[in-house]
Design a protein around this nucleic acid. Sequence first.
DNA 1: GCCGTCGATGTTGACGTCAACATCGCGCGT
DNA 2: ACGCGCGATGTTGACGTCAACATCGACGGC
Lengths: 329, 329
Amino acid sequence: MADVARVAGVSGQTVSRVANDRLNVDAATRDRVRAAMRELGYRPNSAARALRNGVYRSIGVIVFELHSYGTTRTLDAIAIAATNRGYAINLVPVLDVSQSAVTSAFDRLGEQAVDGVIILIEAHTLDEAGVRLPERLPVVVVDSSAHYDYPIVDSDQRQGARLATEHLLELGHQTVWHLGGPPTSFAADRRRRSWEQTLLDHGRKVPPVFDGDWTSTSGYEAGRALAANDEVTAVFVANDQMALGLLRALYERGRAVPDDVSVVGFDDMEEAAHFWPPLTTVRQTFTEVGRRSVDALIAEIQAGDHRHAPVAVPTELVIRKSTAPPPAR
Amino acid sequence: MADVARVAGVSGQTVSRVANDRLNVDAATRDRVRAAMRELGYRPNSAARALRNGVYRSIGVIVFELHSYGTTRTLDAIAIAATNRGYAINLVPVLDVSQSAVTSAFDRLGEQAVDGVIILIEAHTLDEAGVRLPERLPVVVVDSSAHYDYPIVDSDQRQGARLATEHLLELGHQTVWHLGGPPTSFAADRRRRSWEQTLLDHGRKVPPVFDGDWTSTSGYEAGRALAANDEVTAVFVANDQMALGLLRALYERGRAVPDDVSVVGFDDMEEAAHFWPPLTTVRQTFTEVGRRSVDALIAEIQAGDHRHAPVAVPTELVIRKSTAPPPAR
DNA sequence: GCCGTCGATGTTGACGTCAACATCGCGCGT
DNA sequence: ACGCGCGATGTTGACGTCAACATCGACGGC
């Protein structure tokens, strides 16, 4: 900055004013300074700015593995929303779900130059690790837990699961089986409970639940058990990736989809439309979740506006070819 | 820091020494300072540190959409590798591929607190935008272009495409068709050229290429044309997602895989093993690509070690059920 | 012509940290 | 008993920026 000031023949303060588009700078001076900045390749030093202003214009995002489709899409949406709002993104990976890994991620974050944090890991994990974030640091949790003091943003899991289950019941299935996500996930928990409640509301029996871990491999493994059971005519799967594994298990067993078994997924990942058959699924609007969580966090940062109602972004049922009335007996 | 010093009854300098595990601090003093830090919830201010030390211990990663499987996995690997090396990750999304978007991303980055940059967008885009990075900023490009002054790290596209093509030829197919990635991608370009060269090396005719944009939807669309052509008995697809779309198109046309048509993908995404049939594909070791690019960048940062040979991480053919000898005629 | 006003620009200091240098005191060798 | 060396700790200043205050000059009203 001093160099620019010298070249332009002004003081550092004037350079600062130009860099920040402050008023009260003569047009000729401004042009001269701009030219000097360009000539010297001047870039404001963000560390000094942050030190001076006390804000970083940066938000931390804590993630655990980018394997799951939903997390990835949400991260993408968060990054875009934050950029639009003038915030940088500080990505903090948690290497595994052990207590020490989570704790050390939080410690790292405490030292990071961030004004606030969005947590993209399933909050059960946090419980177990018993970690606390640095106080006074604004936080938003993208999850479906109601157990936190922090603002929460997520898709409306309850509504989505109900949509899926009722769609299958309306097609005439006696009941709907469930291939759920990992018990450590609040989102999975919500979907499972809502599925169960929907069945009860309609007076149907609730079959045992099979659990996966979101991966298609786990869906395949649980799917083999489901495929082997002739009573199963309709399955609500907690995400599309596991649904893919289930489809494979059904094929291997020679059970046709949707003629013998109907399958509904959750997420509407881009590939779901091209599964065979194309998958009926519950669409989550990840961009909206990302946008809303950034909005909530920035509100917190700017206003100290800590307590506000959880945001539940609605989902939508996308009907394709993997669902049909049950086979005539 | 001043508060901690007061509580512990020492000078700020001693607090600094304790915070940085410097030698020559009395054990009793150290404990006292540690206690004070805990009591006050002291966190070193990273902006001040960065300002003082002139380094940020942070690297920027420029990405364009996290839709593609490979980019996502590589980003994950980069984040983990960087964390292990003590670097934070600054994620800089490029909103679209227009020149202005790319330029503004680079500008933002120039102001970011980063010691170096990893570029995860396909470099053709950079060409078109005609942008230059701030000088003196270490850069690594994860791509297969040879056109850059920057160190390059990527999977060995050439070898992977040859593996796939030769596998199909060895099964007895007369030739191999290709469903390629977007022409704007160097990686897609490399795969296409290597496929073509392999066919020529074996004295086979080179069929026309179909292009997609990495998405399964584009694979489906191009796939319909391929499925309609009875001459097609073997297809090498430039990624797994498009291969999924092709599989769907083949089903719709009533052509069996692998009995009528063999298909090989590229990436080995987790889902590929559960496609129907399970997909033969070329496995990329994304973790290795991520790790190597972080290593290269840190070497550049620390040593000013700018020019070093491109890194080509080997790939591996994973044979599953989507490939078989051609149908007897 | 004098003074008040206001816009343009300059000067100073502080943000939190840490390297460099300064100081202090203890123990040991002679 | 004296001085030297060394380990422990303190003091100072600088990193780059920008708010607050200071200054300077031009212009208008009387």
